[in-house]
Simulated assay, not measured.
Amino acid sequence: LTVDYRVMLEKGEQIVKAMRIVSKLFENAKIVFGIEDNKSDSIKVINGFIKPDDKMDICQLKTKYPQGGERSLIYAVTGRKINSHMLPADAKCIVINASTAYAIYNALYENLPLIHRYMTVSGEGVNNCNNFKVPIGMSQKDVIEAAGGLKPEVCKVIAGGPMTGSAMGNLDVPVQKTSSGIIAFTFDDVAAMNQSNCIHCGKCMSVCPSNLVPQMLCKAVKENDTDRFESLGGMECVQCGCCSYVCPAKIPLTGMFIMGKAEVKSKAKRNGGAK
């Protein structure tokens, strides 16, 4: 998805103006733009609008996934760590992405509410990949039509990014304020995978940004042991999809952890209701 990248390139002045106002809301606040090093052109754009007296800086980050996630970004920029029981404010941070910063500009300078969302429509199954300014509430099917429609051989459409997005069973769903993109595939890699037993190779553990042990969490989910899942730190999973991607056994680990987290929350709600 390239939407935030394009917003930085084309709305850099507005982003800096918005963050200049935000910085005044907090005493001794410092604004840090965390931008990966493969976006050098957007770094130049943002830097060009920062004034010498602004309490702003640019942190050029190494390009790697899932560094754009809230927890990973806070750690990469400040060295501070947060978990699922904490908010960024607990680390004395506020995380605002490029599109949100531009929405703040529109609210403060143009008196415009959030009625549009910038979205990326991409993938080999789309006739005209592009970024679009989309009214919130518009059908995602109509967004795809604006991109020239889908090719006949499309087999899967994802709402969101390729690693964290969700497969869409129906395109007649509205664009929301959190919608970021649509990706259409002509080949379903996941469906073509032949799942086998875990060989305990540890690859999933080596790529987990939360330092979890996915193979043990997987066993807990299979055994429906929510207490063990929680004690192993399952609620710290950020659902980045890295473990599923590297697993040689093709086990859908991330999907299992999403179910595990949902069961923990459901159990806590049931117990709370019983009290």
Rank of each mutant, 00 (worst) to 15 (best):
R270G: 02
L114A: 08
M259F: 02
A249F: 01
N106M: 10
Q195Y: 03
G202A: 12
E110M: 15
L61M: 04
E124N: 15
V213T: 11
R117H: 05
L9E: 10
K62A: 07
C198A: 13
L212I: 07
N197Q: 15
Q67G: 04
F187G: 02
C155D: 11
G241F: 01
A107K: 09
G255A: 07
I31E: 01
Q239N: 14
I58C: 04
K275T: 15
I31T: 03
A191N: 00
V264Y: 06
G149K: 04
S196V: 09
N97W: 08
S196W: 10
R6V: 08
K261G: 10
A274V: 12
I104F: 02
A191D: 07
G272Y: 14
D142V: 08
D54K: 05
D41S: 03
V213G: 06
D4W: 04
Y75R: 08
E13M: 13
M205F: 00
Y118H: 14
T254A: 00
P152R: 14
V246Y: 06
D188S: 09
Y65S: 09
D37M: 10
S206T: 14
F187W: 09
S266Y: 02
M168G: 05
G260L: 03
T120P: 05
N106A: 14
Y118S: 02
P135F: 09
C208T: 04
K44P: 10
E230S: 11
G125M: 04
A159H: 08
R20C: 14
H116L: 10
M119R: 10
C129M: 12
V32P: 08
Q67A: 08
I74V: 10
I144R: 02
A98W: 04
I158G: 01
M163G: 01
N47D: 12
K222M: 06
P162T: 01
A76R: 06
V246K: 03
A268G: 03
N194Y: 04
Q215V: 10
C155Y: 11
V95I: 15
G273A: 15
G181F: 01
Y105E: 02
Q215R: 03
V95F: 04
I199T: 15
P209T: 12
D37C: 10
I46W: 05
G48W: 05
M19W: 03
L87T: 14
P135S: 07
G123Q: 08
S139I: 02
N131D: 15
M256N: 12
F187D: 05
K44E: 15
A167T: 15
L253S: 00
C59N: 08
G241T: 11
F33L: 07
N128V: 07
I21E: 15
A249H: 06
S179E: 06
G12R: 00
N131G: 09
R71L: 09
S266K: 11
S206N: 12
S210T: 01
N38F: 02
R6F: 05
K55N: 14
V190T: 00
N211M: 11
L9Q: 13
P174E: 01
G34C: 10
M119E: 13
K133T: 14
K156V: 04
G68S: 13
C243D: 01
N224G: 03
N83V: 04
F229I: 03
